[in-house]
């Protein structure tokens, strides 16, 4: 596919996402923060449903050799990086999606968060230039490397190759776990509604 076509597809996809997120008020930050702080799960349920659909869809296509899964080594940097990110998104009140969507609604705080996300990325690029860690994609080996704190690379595709079991089987197991969590949340909500009903009586 030509780069122009790729950019066009990405723009159309992004536009629909922006519209749907704006109209639904979905926020990834709220999906985690509200569940932890306020015990409300409006966004958490939506996140789980999307993950269920995606797990079945991605692993289904990976089973037949289709799709473009991400391929890069992973390790301690994912845990540390997303810990910083998770803290940051709660403080900023927006994640990568909602900063763009809220900016599109005229929220200057989101524009400010976006500006400092860019500044944070640039600052990290300076630090990386001294540390050379985590390894650049060209230096990744796909194998376990203790000294580089890297666990290598593994996904549904490699699981299928190593076990001979179609990726969709693992996908269905993950989707079942996600569905169990979704149902547990719904039961919790029903219980909360029940107890608030008794209080109001």
């Amino acid at each position: 596919m030509s780069p122009v076509a790729e950019c066009l597809i990405a723009f159309v996809f992004g536009s629909v996402v922006g519209l749907l997120v704006q109209r639904s008020r979905f926020c990834n930050t709220a999906a985690l923060r509200d569940a932890m702080l306020f015990k409300t799960f409006r966004n958490t349920k939506a996140l789980l449903v999307a993950m269920m659909v995606l797990t079945i869809g991605f692993t289904g296509f990976i089973s037949i050799g289709a799709g473009n899964p991400m391929r890069f080594d992973v390790g301690l940097n994912q845990i540390l990086g997303l810990f910083l990110f998770g803290t940051g998104m709660v403080l900023a009140g927006a994640c990568t999606v909602s900063t763009w969507v809220k900016a599109g609604e005229g929220n200057f705080g989101a524009v400010w968060a976006l500006l400092f996300t860019f500044i944070g990325m640039f600052l990290f690029s300076l630090i990386w230039s001294f540390l050379y860690w985590p390894p650049a994609p060209s230096a990744m080996t796909g194998e376990l490397s203790i000294e580089r704190l890297q666990l290598g690379f593994s996904n549904a595709e490699t699981l299928q190759e190593k076990t001979g079991i179609p990726a969709i089987v693992f996908g269905l197991i993950q989707a079942a776990v996600l569905f169990y969590i979704y149902q547990a949340i719904r039961r919790k909500e029903a219980k909360q509604q029940g107890s608030s009903g008794v209080e109001s009586v």
Binding site: G81, L84, G86, C95, F116, T117, I119, G120, M121
Partner: peptide, 9 residues
């Protein structure tokens, strides 16, 4: 928060 998000990503 913005800085942490950028560095974290």
């Amino acid at each position: 928060g913005g800085l942490l998000m950028g560095i974290g990503i």
